[in-house]
Simulated scan of single mutants.
Amino acid sequence: MYNSRPLIFIAHPLLGFVLDPLSEHYEALPLWVEENKQRLAEARVLVVAGEFRIEPALIDAMPQLGLIACFSVGYDGIDVPAMRARGIAVTHAMDANSEDAADHAIGLILAHRREIVVGDAKVRSGGWSNGSKALTRSLADTSLGIVGMGSIGQAIARRADALRLHTCWWGPTEKPDLPWPRADSLATLARDSDILVIAARAHAGNEKMISAEIIDQLGRDGLLVNIARGQLIDEDALIARLQDGRLGGAALDVFMQEPTPPARWQNVPNTILTPHTAGATDAAIATMMTMLRANLDAFFGGGRLPTPVT
C-alpha cells in the first residue's frame, strides 16, 4: 500500500540532497529513478532546479500537477505563462542568494584584476624565486557596468561603492529611485565600462544578449564577469576574442553547457572559471530549503504561496 503522505517528485539529481529532509513530511520520489515514473500521474508537486528546461511531455504525464516548486532563485527553464494557462502555480526562492552571489562577483573581479589565482600558482611553482613582484591593476576609479539591476545587481553596486568603483548599469526597465545612473543602451554601457558584470535574469528573449558586438565594445582592456546564466553570452564569440586579444579577460561562474567541457577552456587565456557556485553557500541553501518547505506546506494546506513567480 502506498504512503498516505502527499506525493512529490524531485526532478534532478542535482537536488538529491532535498530528498531526506522532504521525506520527513512528504513522500518524495526522485524522478531519475526509472521505476518511480510509474507514479507520475499521482503527483501534485514537482520540485525543480530553475536552470533546467522542463519538457512538455513530463507535464503532460502529470495530470494532477498543481505546483512547480523551484528550489533556486532563477526559473528560466520553466515556461511560466504556459504553466499558468494550465492552472499550475510556480514558486521560487526569491532573492535568497543575492548577497552571496554579489560577494562572488566581487571576488571574481578582485581575483582577476589583482591576479590572485596567477599569484598563487607562481608561489607554488617556484616562480617567485627571485623575490620580484608583478604589478597588478588597482580598482580605484575603475568604471563598472552592471547588466541587470535586480537584487543581485544592486548588491554588487553597493559593494562596488566601497571599493571605489564608478558604477553605471543598464536594464530594460528604468529605475529612477536608484543612486546609480542608467546607461542609454547595453552597447553604451559596454563601451564606457572597464568591467562588465552580467547579473540579469535569463529568459527566451535575451539569449546571447552579450553578443560579439557587445564584447567588442568592452574591448581589449575590458573584463567580462558572468554570475547570471551562461546563455546570456555568445560563448563562442567570447572565447574567440579572448584567444586573439580583442577582450582583456573573463571571469565566469556560469556556462552555456554545464558542466562545461574542460577542453573548451584549455587554451583560453586570461580567464578565471568557477563551477556555478556564486549563490551556493550554506546560508543561501538553508534559506532556499526553508522557502521550499513553506511553499509546499502552503500548497498542501490550501494557503497562500509565500514566494510565487508573478
Rank of each mutant, 00 (worst) to 15 (best):
N267H: 15
W169F: 13
I233S: 10
A298W: 11
I285S: 01
L67K: 00
T260C: 13
F255N: 07
I285H: 00
P21C: 14
S23H: 09
H276F: 11
E99N: 13
D184I: 11
T274C: 03
S129A: 15
P21Q: 14
M1S: 08
M288F: 06
L252Y: 00
H25G: 06
C70T: 15
V117Q: 07
L163W: 00
T271R: 06
L186V: 05
P6C: 05
E174S: 13
Q243P: 00
T260D: 11
D20A: 15
P181V: 05
E207C: 09
R159N: 11
G131F: 05
A190K: 00
G205Y: 04
A28G: 04
I59W: 08
D221C: 08
S211P: 03
M291R: 15
L46G: 00
M288A: 09
L19I: 15
H203R: 13
G145T: 01
A101K: 05
I285C: 01
I54H: 01
M256F: 13
I227V: 13
P176S: 13
D20K: 14
I88F: 07
N3E: 15
R44Q: 12
L108H: 10
S143P: 02
Y75Q: 08
D76I: 02
W265N: 02
I198K: 02
M288K: 13
L186K: 03
G279V: 14
N130H: 10
L22C: 09
I227G: 01
A280S: 11
R159A: 12
A157M: 07
G77A: 07
Q38F: 11
W170F: 15
T281L: 03
Y2T: 14
I88G: 07
E55H: 12
P30G: 09
A199M: 03
Y26A: 09
A286K: 02
T173G: 02
I215M: 14
P306F: 06
Q154N: 03
A28S: 06
E34C: 10
D244M: 00
M256W: 15
L15A: 09
V18D: 07
G302M: 06
